[in-house]
């Protein structure tokens, strides 16, 4: 229990630090985001509007930094992340809320799929090392060396342009209104195949290699030999003894990789103009949209933290030796 408490405090402190950094950065950066917005609207904003903007963004020059900070936390708990410049006057929270499900669904499913498939293949070829199965290794080495954007572009060129089987970009058919009806869901699924497929292809190799190597290491452990000597069925030795131990580092790696779904998706969403958080971040960067960037960074940080927590929990569940400290 003391272990759990310690971890909880650790996460709280980290979360606090992340939010605080998020608060400080735009305030020490050169330039004035409100000024930038005013310039964009080329003087079409009244003085009143400008003042309310400063207040809205929490950049009121008359308020002390401390009261700004307290204010910032207050608004954060109310779910208010300010207004986006790019999508003015949509609140940042709404922009993120619209784009986040796309990313989480697409990359989340792709990541889980990639992890499951990669780990399983890794178990197989690690167990049968020194046979034909090792022939897969050069292929995986090649796949893991290919840069994602290149893979994405090749996929678009071949499967969306040369043979136009799949759409080139977007998350759904532009003629449809988003909603939960069969036509729209079908269209969304159809649009997700290329992005998800390329994400799986580019990340599966890492899981295969990692698992294979761990399998090879664990296969020579004494307890695996004992399991063989006991005459247990091969599947039981392979999964219950070898893979069960080999998967431990793999699982924490996976939990951590979940944290990078949001940030790591940037390139994919740029290549496929996919309406997720990465694409929004890309637009926000282009438009110097500080509130939106800040909001997305906050989400990314929280995602990494949550993933770390998952990794902790998973490890404690899977490895009895870590429970010792609890």
């Amino acid at each position: 229990m003391r272990f759990v408490l310690r971890r909880c405090i650790f996460y709280l402190v980290t979360a606090w630090a992340a939010v605080t950094v998020n608060f400080v950065i735009p305030r020490v950066m050169p330039g004035d985001p409100v000024q930038a917005l005013i310039n964009r609207y080329q003087g079409q904003l009244s003085t009143d509007a400008v003042e309310s903007l400063y207040a809205l963004f929490g950049l009121d020059p008359d308020a002390s930094i401390w009261s700004q900070y307290v204010d910032y936390w207050g608004r954060l708990f109310a779910g208010d992340l300010g207004l986006s410049f790019t999508f003015f006057p949509t609140p940042v929270a709404d922009v993120i809320l619209q784009s986040l499900p796309w990313t989480v669904a697409l990359v989340g499913v792709a990541s889980v799929l990639s992890f499951a498939v990669g780990t399983l293949i890794g178990v197989m070829i690690g167990w049968r090392r020194g046979t034909w199965a090792d022939g897969i290794l050069p292929v995986t080495a090649f796949l893991s060396a290919v840069p994602y954007f290149w893979l994405g572009l090749i996929a678009i060129m071949l499967l969306a342009v040369t043979w136009p089987v799949f759409p080139t970009s977007g998350g759904y058919d532009g003629g449809l209104v988003p909603g939960l009806y069969p036509e729209f869901i079908g269209s969304a699924l159809w649009h997700s195949i290329l992005p998800a497929g390329t994400v799986v292809i580019s990340s599966v190799a890492g899981w295969i290699l990692g698992m294979r190597n761990m399998m090879v290491t664990v296969s020579s452990e004494d307890y695996v030999t004992v399991a063989q000597a006991k005459g247990l069925p091969e599947r039981q030795v392979m999964f219950g003894y070898a893979a069960r131990n080999a998967v431990l580092p793999q699982v924490s790696g996976f939990a951590l990789s979940l944290g990078f779904i949001v940030s790591g998706t940037l390139v994919m969403e740029m290549v496929f103009s996919y309406p997720g958080v990465g694409f929004v971040l890309y637009q926000a960067t282009g438009g110097q949209d500080y509130p939106l960037m800040q909001g997305i960074f906050l989400i990314i940080t929280l995602a990494v933290l949550v993933a770390n927590m998952l990794a902790d929990v998973a490890y404690v569940l899977l490895d009895p030796r870590t429970r010792q400290e609890a």
Binding site: D222, T225, V226, N245, L318, R321
Partner: peptide, 13 residues
């Protein structure tokens, strides 16, 4: 068989 490496002969999990 009781193996030489009996210290690691038990599956830790």
């Amino acid at each position: 068989i009781v193996f030489q490496g009996a210290m690691n002969s038990l599956n830790p999990v």
